[in-house]
Design a binder for these strands. Structure first.
Lengths: 340, 340
DNA sequence: TACTTTAGAGTTATCGGTAACACAAATTGA
DNA sequence: TCAATTTGTGTTACCGATAACTCTAAAGTA
């Protein structure tokens, strides 16, 4: 590997002079600069970031940690974060925790070891607390995305999950559904808690029945084994005509499970959920959803992060951005007559 | 930031002893080890990866560079790569080039500067050549995914694009379509070239007409502005009843464009394409596709990469894995009667 | 008992850069 | 003309870790 010393030797200057050329610092004669540059090109020199970061104490690297790289919500968010990072001249790397704390811990570990300048985190859940505390302790600025973590104060970008759940229940009620079930992610995720809360409040508000067996707490990430969902569907009160899914992945899995046993959506069961299935939804408008501004989650979150990196304390008190969502009515909810 | 020297001082040992505890090397008495460990925990010590990599000359970091993080084909591939990396105890970071050479260059730059141990690359196109040459020159092992780059010899995992295009044309012909258009990615991507080639060969084979205006070469990544596609649809020979899209993104965009002007799929136009829309396709089986084993692209590619990192030259001659694809017939292609 | 081996440490040099300071030659100013 | 600047470049120390070597005391051996 070519080092600054190889360049120095070949160009008949000191290493420091080469360093000055690379960084465009200090005074250098045009002649020397040209000579050094030529040698650098000849030898195909690439600065060693490790050595550089070691002495500079900063890497100029940012990380984005998401919980499900196959979920369009997060990949759209990632594009937003990427665009904002690029706008400010930062490099962004992605990690995928798969909703698993162990994987998240590994990434946090990598991030700490790599001494990243900052991190955008969609946390796996409340148990992410120690991971975030580690970041804080080591002075790595971070911004939370999509989920709160009790005990952590930080900049954060959220959607209004409670309001969203409210709107979904209202829509289903408006469509004539009186018995509405909920399949949710783990309650260790704040989004799941708020969605459950919104669901229960709205049921009460619209005078709809709440039944424990109509609510399933499982996990947001895709699973191979659908038996848990199957069993839940079996236990469901027979009057149930509509299901709210805590996210897009759950909605898809419920529909798969239903259709595997010959039950069709929306004819035999209505479904509505949180989050879009990105571009695909446009060509085949099937799922009725609460659409969140995924791109903005990433874009605004990245801006908060960069502000925090640039200004530190001076960026002021923690900022909390709550992004509004939107109900998009499509075909997966059936209108029920008086008989429903 | 806590360093090895802080630990050493507090534990009343030398830095080297601490290093030995961290890495479990050399001889250390249980008493000393325990003492050092306790101090490390107390101070919340995290090794500085920069300093470590600098002296060890290896980072234990792997990169995956994909061209479109919002495309389920690549995110599924990413999950495969991740699983394989984890199985072998490597850390994996992601980058997204967005099909843009400049972004790809930046990532390659980051990768070189970071002195990654290896890279999995889905190249933006033939012009990625210098990027790959840079990796080669600096001794960073890499494996190509999905696309060949003329002039580059390396391990590679590919789909059989020509065969796929062939099968799509055959299917459409079998369904009664005689005039089939093709919207394709940039021919600077080998997949686009092979798909075009397969398309033309198959047209000839099944005695179908080829017309230049029925073929559009554009780009694989999503666009905001659909006018190019619009204009192309306008220029299309009126006899055209079916369109093959070079990938899933193009298919979605064609359908959007058509539907914006009130033309429906498959009633007014049939569509078939390469690549799935992951989970969503299962709940709403709409697009007829050539399905590629995205997960395997990543999983097998990562295995090739790790073999190469571990064994270097000893891993033998370059390996080329060609993964078979599968035609999945759904609703986006209409069967034409004699009148079609 | 005296010599060798081994366990359990510490010392020093180094990885590839950069900051801070030093210094000679060229230029400026009174 | 000579001191004061300025310009261009080199020297040294250090960032935080590890490899290779050294050293001492205890244990083993003939």
């Amino acid at each position: 590997m070519v080092t600054i010393y190889d360049i120095a030797k070949k160009a008949n200057v000191s290493a420091m002079t080469v360093s000055r050329v690379i960084n465009n610092t200090g005074r250098i004669s045009e002649k020397t600069r040209a000579k050094v540059k030529r040698v650098m090109d000849e030898l195909g020199y690439v600065p060693n970031q490790m050595a550089r970061s070691l002495v500079l104490q900063q890497t100029h690297l940012l990380f984005l940690l998401i919980t499900d790289i196959t979920n369009p919500f997060y990949t759209t968010l990632a594009r937003g974060a990427e665009d904002a990072a690029q706008k400010h001249g930062f490099r962004l790397l992605f990690g995928n925790s798969d909703e698993k704390l162990a994987k998240e811990r590994d990434y946090i570990d990598t991030i700490l070891k790599t001494r990243a300048d900052g991190v955008l985190v969609a946390p796996a859940g409340d148990a992410s607390l120690p991971h975030l505390e580690a970041l804080r302790k080591h002075g790595v600025p971070f911004v939370l995305l999509d989920r709160e973590v009790p005990g952590v104060d930080s900049d954060i970008v959220l959607g209004d999950s409670k309001e969203g759940a409210h709107r979904l229940v209202k829509h289903l009620a408006d469509m004539g559904h009186r018995h509405i079930a909920l399949i949710n992610g783990s309650l260790t995720a704040s989004t799941a808690r708020y969605r459950l809360e919104g669901y229960r409040e709205a049921l009460k508000l619209y005078d709809l029945e709440y039944a424990e067996e109509n609510v399933l707490e499982t996990s947001f990430e895709p699973r191979n084994d659908l038996t848990e969902i199957e069993h839940w569907l079996d236990r469901l009160r027979p009057e149930v005509t509509a299901i709210i899914a805590g996210n897009n992945v759950l909605a898809v899995e419920v529909i798969r499970t239903l259709s595997a046993r010959g039950r069709r959506v929306p004819d035999d069961m209505s479904i509505a959920c949180f989050d879009e299935w990105a571009a695909y939804a446009e060509i085949d408008p099937f799922l009725t959803v609460i659409s969140q501004q995924a791109y903005q989650f990433g874009y605004l979150g990245m801006q908060l992060l960069i502000d925090r990196i640039r200004d530190g304390e001076a960026a002021g008190p923690w900022k909390k951005i709550v992004l509004p969502s939107q109900l998009i009515v499509r075909r997966s909810v059936r209108r029920l007559g008086a008989e429903g």
